[in-house]
Design a protein around this nucleic acid. Structure first.
Length: 436
RNA sequence: GUGAGCGUAGCUCAGCGGUAGAGCAUCGGACUGUGGCUCCGAGGGUCGUGGGUUCAAAUCCCAUCGCUCACCCCA
């Protein structure tokens, strides 16, 4: 008789367990806090969309849409996909709900899982988590771009991360980019045979990608190719120059990176990325850019847009390796009761402490004192409260601080205050700690 | 989709032809109202799976699956 087979999480998706979930929750709370101070508000969009939405926005020819989406045919024959990113959904919702009628800029953020069927590796999962922000409205002023980037740097600061790099670029607009790409194609045609195999293929499929080639031998040739910066039309050139001024006035350091080419078709003009050296090959913590023609492409009004997405999995990875955030929630009190007569008092105390916001563990079965203290210690409890027949009779409980074994007798009504004040209720969140 | 490395207890790993091991962790005991230390004991494995070679395979060979990292691409 063979035992039933065990299941495991499907490839590329994973469980996130305590205590890691504490850090995830801390990070999400911190990100929300930062974004909301910049007057962004949350939008919740579905995980499912018509496949066509992604094809039209991200681009049918991109890797994401052409080979990485989880797609199925619904019972009414519509092609449905698990979202590989959320900008398309946000813009769809913006249009669907007539949000251009709202006053001023529409500033939205979202958080949740995305799905791409890629080969998993460090920092890359098939179900991964993004937090993203989008600004939609009638203006495309570079101050918006710069403020969005500033907001990201503030979040990095709150996470106590300083080892990161901001890369920026402009990839032109519908006016100058096609001309540049054409020029690049022509230049590539002449030198194609000297390039690596990947680049020979890219020369045809996605010429901009050649610029991002890492093969050493190709660099000399790549450096002689026409540069996007020198081929921007005047409005794009001015927009990019203003973006740099806007970053300068905010004292945000950046590297202009001509090779920064985003993989999604809807990007134009500003593109940016924040990278970290801790991440291995998948080193982008966040990336984004401007998408001024996307709303129209999706049948909406002629409004401009810009946004970014950050990879939560990667942020968590980097925050952990930096080791400067402690988001764990300690066990404040472990209640040890002895004798059936002590249990009602123990249960009453537990409830009372919890009402005060303290984290309390109350054993269901009568423990041996020695074992109970040992368990309290291994659970990381700050205090043990000992309630036996004696204590019930005296109306005073023994409260023991486990760190230094100091013990005192306190009336039931005084226990909560003592536990709370003796050492502040732990590093609730790094967010609050960093503000003090 | 391509390549490389690795699959032995919950975790970290040893064993590399001769009856499956250690440390850590878990549970119990020494220890009957006071934890951390120490000592003793227990549970937990079809050695990823399938086939082959051999008197004998965790060990050698083949296949397959999985994991990891990298390419590609991206958060």
């Amino acid at each position: 008789m063979s035992s039933p087979r065990k299941f495991h999480a499907v490839r590329g998706v994973r469980d996130i367990l305590p205590p890691d979930t504490s850090l995830w929750n801390w990070f999400e709370a911190t990100a929300r806090d930062v974004l909301e101070t910049y007057n962004f508000r949350e939008i919740r969009v579905p995980v499912l969309e018509e496949t066509e939405l992604f094809a039209r926005s991200v681009g049918a020819e991109t890797d994401i849409v052409s080979k990485e989406m989880y797609t199925f045919t619904d019972r009414d024959e519509t092609a449905i996909s698990l979202r590989p990113e959320a900008t398309a959904s946000v813009v769809r919702a913006y249009i669907e709900h007539g949000m251009q009628m709202r006053p001023g800029l529409v500033k939205l953020y979202y958080a949740g899982p995305m799905f791409r069927r890629e080969r998993p590796q460090k920092g890359r999962y098939r179900q991964f988590y993004q937090i993203g922000a989008e600004v939609l409205g009638s203006t495309d002023h570079p101050a918006i771009d710069a403020e969005l980037i500033e907001m990201l740097t503030v979040l990095l600061e709150r996470c106590k991360l300083d080892n990161w790099t901001l890369l920026i670029n402009s990839i032109g607009d519908a006016n100058c980019r096609p001309q540049y790409v054409q020029k690049l194609r022509e230049a590539l045609a002449g030198v194609k045979s000297q390039l690596c195999g990947d680049c020979q293929r890219r020369s045809e499929t996605n010429p901009l990608r050649v610029l991002d080639c890492k093969v050493e031998a190709d660099q000399v040739i790549i450096n002689r190719l026409p540069q996007i910066a020198e081929n921007l039309c005047e409005p794009c050139r001015e927009h990019f120059a203003e973006l740099r001024r806007q970053l300068d006035l905010r004292s945000i350091p950046y590297q202009v990176t001509p090779r920064l080419v985003r993989g999604l078709d809807y990007y134009m003009r500003t593109t940016f990325e924040i990278t970290s050296p801790h991440l291995g090959a998948q080193n982008a913590l966040a990336g984004g850019g401007r998408y001024d023609s996307l709303p129209e492409m999706l049948g909406g009004p002629a409004v401009k847009g810009i946004g970014f997405a950050l990879g939560e999995d990667r942020f968590i990875e980097v925050i952990q390796s930096a080791g400067k955030i402690d988001a764990t929630r300690p066990l404040d009190a472990f209640i040890v009761w002895m004798g059936a007569g002590a249990y009602p008092a123990a249960a009453r105390l537990a409830r009372r402490l919890r009402q005060q916001g303290l984290c309390v563990e109350l054993p269901a079965e009568e423990p041996k004192l020695r074992k109970a203290l040992s368990l309290a210690e291994r659970l990381g409890a700050r205090f043990a409260v000992i309630i036996g027949e004696n204590e019930v009779r005296e109306g005073a409980f023994a409260v023991k601080r486990l760190a230094d074994a100091e013990q005192r007798k306190l009336a039931e009504a005084d226990v909560a205050a003592f536990v709370k004040t003796t050492a502040p209720v732990a590093p609730r969140t790094g967010a609050q700690a960093s503000q003090t």
